[in-house]
Design a protein around this nucleic acid. Sequence first.
DNA 1: CAATTGACTTTGGCAAAGCAAAGTTAATTA
DNA 2: TAATTAACTTTGCTTTGCCAAAGTCAATTG
Lengths: 227, 227
Amino acid sequence: MASRTIENYLKQIYLSRPADETQWLTMGKLSTAVGVTPGTATSMVRAISDAHLVEYEPRAGVRLTPAGEQLALHVLRRHRLIELLLVQVLGLDWSEVHEEAEELEHVVSDRLLARIDEILHHPAFDPHGDPIPTAGGVVRRQDCCTLLDCPLGEPTSIARILDQSAEFLQYVNQCGLLPGAEIRVASRNHQAQTVELMAIKPGETQVEAMSFSVAEKFLVQLNERKK
Amino acid sequence: MASRTIENYLKQIYLSRPADETQWLTMGKLSTAVGVTPGTATSMVRAISDAHLVEYEPRAGVRLTPAGEQLALHVLRRHRLIELLLVQVLGLDWSEVHEEAEELEHVVSDRLLARIDEILHHPAFDPHGDPIPTAGGVVRRQDCCTLLDCPLGEPTSIARILDQSAEFLQYVNQCGLLPGAEIRVASRNHQAQTVELMAIKPGETQVEAMSFSVAEKFLVQLNERKK
DNA sequence: CAATTGACTTTGGCAAAGCAAAGTTAATTA
DNA sequence: TAATTAACTTTGCTTTGCCAAAGTCAATTG
């Protein structure tokens, strides 16, 4: 079995992998994602590569093998199911659960995980809108865009929050932009680098302005028009 | 903070401590309880003693300091609250939860533990009847005797199961001797080394015979006579 | 084309935990 | 009292992960 350290590396390699699948993840990015010095990342990746969980090319970077990706998705599944359990059943605030799940994900047994999955009725998304991989290691693809590049004026719903720090999530809470909230992007100001939002059902969500760098952290889906 | 290894040693020192408080726990017993070789236990205990969590006397044994005992009770509280959560909220079988809690006890945060405690309404006992120390590190004393030394014929209730291996607990399940079950000890046969039990409410519990060595694993309380 | 720079890798060292095997103690037996 | 034995301790070595610092490579920049 993979140690918890290896599980963490694999998870971070998965989460930080570049959008373009042909690209490698550089050691620099990996080492900051995992929180170790570059030298440590290099030697660890060498070891993981000996176990055929990643491919490693010196001075190019690292990439998951199919086996490594399955393991990473398994860890991610544990993480996200646990987050949802903590929020829905144990009543923790969603800004607290990421840290907690970070530890728990390495110790819950398959049997316990299966029970959690059952109790939550096989959920597809965690509290931040991140998709929960299936037990078979399949991720349902959402098609989303950020508040930076979605069309102006169209009704959309918040689908996913990419920054999961407690601090940021508390801000998200305050302005009511939780996953599911319906909004439209009123305008973008490229000089001021801000995005203006409008609530669809007034009162539910505040009208908000936010900088481009913050807008990038929200993924939204276009609302289906009911015919 | 104490490492998970140290937490484990402290917990085992607490659980295996001799009944007589003036006695030391020998290294041999500790090492088998923790599951390491005697040499490892010796050097680990030396280290823990440098942290003033235990007193260690070479060739005599080891004993918790007040600080060490508090830490041990804290770990035990986590363990037992988790076991109860797994059974009552997540619906695991009580024969499975010990193993699971063994891992989880080292990673749940104080905040999560407080929520668990709340959800379970500040329970006093875990599924095996073991008392749950309070957040302040106080253990409520039960006064119990084993099926070996309780009075014959008196109505009693099963209070606590001392052997928590999955195998044994499945046997306990089958014969309906869960904590709370009301029985009396019909007779003891010192030649055959067996104890005969009788159910108080027929049908609820089977009449059972068991060897002395098994009887020792059940703690019972005398039923209060309602005036 | 050399020099510089930034990113990466290598090397050597450390701390935590563990085991195996050799060495001590102390209690028991003869 | 001497020999034996069981229990404990010491010693030396291993593994896993980590860091710091020194070394390399390759992509600019002058």
